[in-house]
Amino acid sequence: MRKIILALFSLIVWVLLVWPFTPWGFDYQSFLVGIIVSIFVGILFGDVFTESPHKFFEPKRYMWFICFVFVFFWEFLHASFDFAYRVLHPELPINPGIIKVKTNLKKEFAIGILANCIGFAPGAVTVEVSEDNYLYIHMAFIRHIGAEEPGAYVIRRFERILKRIFE
């Protein structure tokens, strides 16, 4: 099952790389080579691809994935404008430090995706993920230092959606 899914993904990447839709018709030769190569890739690397292949057949997860793409681009735009303001301001309004936040996600793959997504949240980068699900985040501007968890609002937006996609 997981071998077929991986073969379909690699066939999509092959079509984007080669682009067989030439102006004089469909290019059968390169498409046939792509099918053979993707079958080989599926047989060789299918065992290390994913743990639970039944999750690929639930359309609700794809809807949440589209929602995740929009949230991701909004955060990305917000982050780059925020840093452009901080860099071009003459007094450099930064207030850096490393804070500690606990995540509610359980699966290892989801925590990895979360730790990478925080790299595009406004003013944050993950430094280390500890074994009991604590994230150490370096932030460029910490707003409420005395609060219980100062930077928790950074990861909550991603966490709510990733929980519905991967768990």
Partner: peptide
């Protein structure tokens, strides 16, 4: 930002985000 900011972590965040955008 790569020139102006004071230490490595701030430089890393600012310039990598802006350059990726």
């Amino acid at each position: 930002g790569l020139i102006r900011l004071p230490d490595l972590y701030n430089r890393l965040q600012a310039s990598l985000k802006c350059v990726a955008m």
